[in-house]
């Protein structure tokens, strides 16, 4: 009975939403023009990076804070750190992981650099770095993380702290996160580098901290 009702209301929802979408008038506000008009002053020439790091810098600042918060919540939830070390994988997989990791680091640095003028940027670079960490863990080359020590804590919080410091520094001369056009390119690259490192550690940490409560095989 519940099943029937839920499926019927889901179908009704899709039907009415689709009808509304097909009828929808053109949007009253179009932000494409303003984005393109101020691109020269934003410090980067790729519009998506300009939106992420300059026009809507708040989003990214709060996003890295949310990510850090999620990681802290996971640290609070997962069990006592055990001595679990992953079983060493097959030698072929280990060799492949050793070969792939430097390449992934090169790809990440390229993506970070390319983000200023073509698709790419801190998120993708951080994700590739995190994937390298997960790969090393699955190949048995990198043990799951225990309680984070000082260096790891600095790495995890560094991106957010750097971003917040830049934002606070800019507050002294006017508005939060309003970069002076002359410095914008350099500041965005600086923030993105910090973000890449912290994002990589946080995303890898989501995996590596979770795997510490694994039962020893």
């Amino acid at each position: 009975m519940k099943r029937f009702a839920v499926i019927c209301s889901a179908l009704l929802f899709v039907g009415s939403l689709a009808a509304a979408m097909l009828e929808l008038a053109p949007a009253a506000i179009d932000l494409r023009g303003p984005v393109a008009a101020h691109l020269a002053a934003s410090g980067v020439s790729h519009p998506v990076t300009a939106v992420l790091l300059n026009y809507r810098g708040y989003d990214t600042l709060l996003e890295i804070a949310v990510l850090l918060l999620a990681l802290l919540a996971i640290l609070a939830v997962v069990g006592e750190p055990g001595a679990a070390r992953p079983a060493p994988a097959h030698p072929v997989l280990q060799t492949l992981a050793r070969l792939a990791t430097p390449l992934m680091i090169v790809v990440a640095v390229y993506l970070l650099w390319a983000g200023a003028f073509r698709p790419g940027g801190a998120f993708q670079a951080g994700a590739v770095l995190a994937a390298a960490g997960v790969l090393l863990h699955l190949a048995g080359l990198l043990p799951g993380w225990q309680t984070p020590r000082l260096r790891l804590r600095l790495g995890l919080a560094g991106g957010f702290a750097l971003f917040l410091a830049v934002a606070g520094g800019l507050l002294a001369q006017g508005t939060l996160l309003q970069y002076p056009p002359a410095l914008a390119g350099g500041l965005i690259l600086l923030i993105e580098s910090g973000l890449t490192l912290s994002l990589a550690l946080t995303l890898a940490g989501l995996f590596l901290f979770l795997s510490r409560d694994e039962v020893a095989p």
């Binding site: 984005v35 939106v51 992420l52 026009y55 809507r56 989003d59 990214t60 998120f123």
Partner: peptide, 11 residues
Amino acid sequence: PDPVPQAMVLT
């Protein structure tokens, strides 16, 4: 293409 929703979805 509209970069504003694209950036929001990336986040």
